[in-house]
Design a protein around this nucleic acid. Structure first.
Length: 509
RNA sequence: GCCCCGUUCGUCUAUCGGUUAGGACACCAGAUUUUCAUUCUGGUAAGAGGGGUUCGACUCCCCUACGGGGUACCA
C-alpha cells in the first residue's frame, strides 16, 4: 500500500470545540505530519437541528490558536472540496442510490410515532431497546414490505421517507483498530441504520464513509464513541465495493472528568473551575473562558493534551510540536480513558512560560495589562517578567500577582490583615518609613542594612517584616525578593504607598 | 437489558513472560532563599478479585467486579 497519507479532523458545528476534540485534532495532525501527509478539516454539519451559529468559525479559530493549521478544508481550500458536508448532499444521494440498486439499502416510510410504537411493542425484558433490524423490518412500512407499486406511489407522493442500510444476518464484521487490535461484531446485533434522513441530508455514517473515500483519507483517528458504529461503516465500505481500500482505524480513549465519572463535558468547566474549551466561547448569555483566557500558552496545552493518553516510551515529558511529530505513533496511545488533571496542565504551562522566548511572554504581559486599561512601560514589563516568570503557572498571574508594579489600586490580603497583622507594629513601621526617607541613592546594598537595623532595633523577625512590607507594597504577603520589589517602584511612589497602606492596615484591623 | 471497549502509585503513565515494577504531576520531609514561590535532594504510594497456562505472570487465556462507550431520522 503506497498511498498518500491524509487525515481528517471532522467535528460538527454544534457548539464550542472542547478539549477532547482538540486532542483528537492534535493526534490527527501529529500522525499526518509524522507520515509526511496532509491534515484536513471537514465540517460535519448534517444535523441542521443542532447547528450552532459561530461554531464553525470557533473551531477554525481554535485550531489556529493551537497551531494545528489544516492543509485543506473548510476555510483552507483544497482539491477535494467542498469540505462542508451540507454542500455535498448530491454526492451522498448519488452514492446511496447505488446501494439501493444493489439491494443493500431500502426506503423506509415509518413515522417517528410508528417507530416508537414498534419499540414499545417489541420491548421485552431480554431486549429493552428493540432495534430496527432483521427482526423488525418486515413488520414495518418500507420498500421491503410494500409492493413495488406502493413504494413507487409513496415515493411520488412527496411524503417524507428515509433510506436505511439493510444489515445482513449471520455475518461477522471485523474491524482492525490500530489502538485496540481486532474488534468484531456479529451482524445480527447491528441495526438498519438510517443513511439518508427525511430532510434529505445524510447521517454521519453515510457521509463519513463517502467523504473519507472521496477525500482519499488514509487513517481515521477519532474518539472511542465511534467504535461501535464502525461495524456499520465497514459494511458500507463493503457494499460500495471499497473494502479493500478502507482507511485504517484508530479509536482514541476518552478524556474523563477529574473524578473519573463519565467523559469530560462542557459543563464540567464551571463545576470544577477549569477551562474545557481552547479559547473563550460566548453564546447567548453563557460565557466560557478558554485555556487562552485562563492564561495558557498553546504549546503547553498541546503538550498536556498529547500526554493525556500518549507517551513517547521515554521519560521525556516536555515536547515541542516538532518533537511530538518526530516521536508520535498511534501504537503508543493507551487504551483506557484518562482523567483531566488541571494541576498537571498548570505545571506544563509553568514550564513553557519559563522556556518560551521572553519577547513572546512580554507581549502577553503587555496584552494582559492593556485589557485592564493599564499601560506599563518597557521597564516595568521587563521587571514583571524577570521577577515573576519563575513564580507563575498562568500568564494571568503576571497581572494578578504583579500589578502593584504598575498600579497602586489593589486590595490588602484579607487573611493577612485578620491573622498576621498586629497593630502593635504600627509605630515601628512609621519609624522605618522615617529611616527610608533619610536614605538616598537606593540600592539593594544600601537598603539591606536599613532593614536589618530596623528588625534588630524593633526586635522583629524576618518572617514578620517581609510579609508585612510586601502587603504594604503589593497587597499580598507573598512575592519575590523584597529588595527587588522595592526597587521596582519609584522612590516617592513607594514611600507614599507604604504610608498609605500602613494606615489602611491600622484601620482595617 | 443487550453489544463493544477498558482496569499498574491519588492522577497521567513505562513495562510488550524473568525489573528492587521506572518516570512525571500532586503530596510530605530536608537543603537553599535569614519569609512565600522557584530550585535541589529525599520520601510515602500501584498491577481490581478469582481461576488457569507456564520453570516463571502486571504482561497470555477464562470468569467476576468495577468503569467507560454505544444502543436516535445526533454527531
Amino acid at each position: 500500500m503506497n498511498q498518500e497519507i491524509r487525515l481528517r479532523f471532522a467535528p460538527s458545528p454544534t457548539g464550542a470545540l472542547h478539549i477532547g476534540g482538540l486532542r483528537t485534532a492534535l493526534y490527527n495532525y501529529l500522525l499526518a505530519k509524522k507520515l509526511g501527509g496532509k491534515f484536513i478539516l471537514r465540517i460535519e454539519d448534517t444535523d441542521q437541528t443542532r447547528f450552532v451559529e459561530g461554531a464553525e468559525k470557533y473551531i477554525i479559530d481554535s485550531l489556529i490558536w493551537a497551531g494545528l493549521v489544516p492543509d485543506e478544508g473548510v476555510g483552507f481550500d483544497g482539491p477535494y472540496g467542498p469540505y462542508r458536508q451540507s454542500e455535498r448532499t448530491a454526492i451522498y444521494k448519488e452514492n446511496v442510490q447505488n446501494l439501493i440498486n444493489k439491494g443493500y439499502a431500502y426506503y423506509a416510510f415509518d413515522t417517528p410515532e410508528e417507530l416508537e410504537k414498534m419499540r414499545a411493542e417489541l420491548a421485552t425484558e431480554a431486549n429493552t431497546m428493540p432495534k430496527y433490524d432483521y427482526k423488525s423490518r418486515l413488520k414495518m412500512k418500507n420498500s421491503l414490505t410494500f409492493s413495488k407499486e406502493d413504494t413507487e406511489n409513496y415515493l411520488q407522493s412527496g411524503k417524507p421517507y428515509v433510506i436505511r442500510l439493510c444489515v445482513p444476518v449471520n455475518e461477522k464484521v471485523q474491524i482492525k483498530d490500530i489502538i485496540r487490535g481486532e474488534v468484531s461484531f456479529q451482524s445480527e446485533e447491528l441495526d438498519d441504520k438510517v443513511l439518508i434522513k427525511s430532510d434529505g441530508l445524510p447521517t454521519y455514517h453515510l457521509a463519513n464513509v463517502v467523504d473519507d473515500r472521496l477525500m482519499k483519507i488514509s487513517h481515521v483517528v477519532r474518539g472511542e464513541e465511534w467504535l461501535s458504529s464502525t461495524a456499520h461503516h465497514v459494511l458500507l465500505y463493503r457494499y460500495f465495493g471499497w473494502e479493500a481500500e478502507m482507511p485504517e482505524f484508530a479509536h482514541l480513549p476518552l478524556i474523563l472528568k477529574p473524578n473519573g465519572k463519565g467523559k469530560l463535558s462542557k459543563r464540567d468547566g464551571a463545576e470544577f473551575g477549569f477551562p474545557v474549551f481552547p479559547i473563550d466561547w460566548k453564546k447567548d448569555n453563557d460565557y466560557f473562558p478558554g485555556f487562552r483566557e485562563f492564561g495558557f500558552l498553546p504549546e503547553a496545552v498541546l503538550n498536556f493534551l498529547a500526554l493525556l493518553g500518549w507517551n513517547s516510551g521515554t521519560e521525556q515529558e516536555l515536547f515541542s510540536l516538532h518533537e511530538m511529530i518526530q516521536n508520535f505513533s498511534l501504537e503508543q496511545i493507551g487504551k483506557g480513558g484518562a482523567r483531566f488533571d488541571f494541576d498537571k496542565a498548570k505545571w506544563f504551562n509553568a514550564q513553557y512560560i519559563q522556556k518560551s522566548d521572553p519577547e513572546i511572554i512580554k507581549r502577553e504581559i503587555l496584552k494582559l495589562y492593556k485589557e485592564q486599561n493599564l499601560d506599563p512601560n518597557e521597564t516595568q514589563i521587563n521587571i514583571i517578567y524577570s521577577l515573576y516568570k519563575e513564580r507563575v503557572h498562568l500568564l494571568t498571574e503576571f497581572y494578578s500577582q504583579a500589578k502593584y508594579i504598575v498600579t497602586d489600586q489593589f486590595d490588602l490580603n484579607k487573611d493577612f490583615v485578620e491573622k498576621k497583622w498586629n497593630n502593635d507594629a504600627y509605630e515601628k513601621y512609621l519609624r522605618l518609613i522615617e529611616d527610608l526617607k533619610n536614605l538616598d541613592n537606593w540600592t539593594k546594598e544600601r537598603l539591606e542594612p536599613v532593614l536589618k537595623n530596623f528588625m534588630e532595633k524593633e526586635s522583629l523577625k524576618m518572617g514578620e517584616v517581609l510579609p508585612s512590607l510586601r502587603v504594604m507594597l503589593s497587597g499580598t504577603p507573598m512575592g519575590p525578593d523584597i529588595y527587588n520589589m522595592i526597587l521596582a517602584l519609584k522612590r516617592e511612589d513607594l514611600l507614599e504607598r507604604i504610608e498609605k497602606n500602613l494606615e489602611k492596615l491600622k484601620t482595617a484591623k
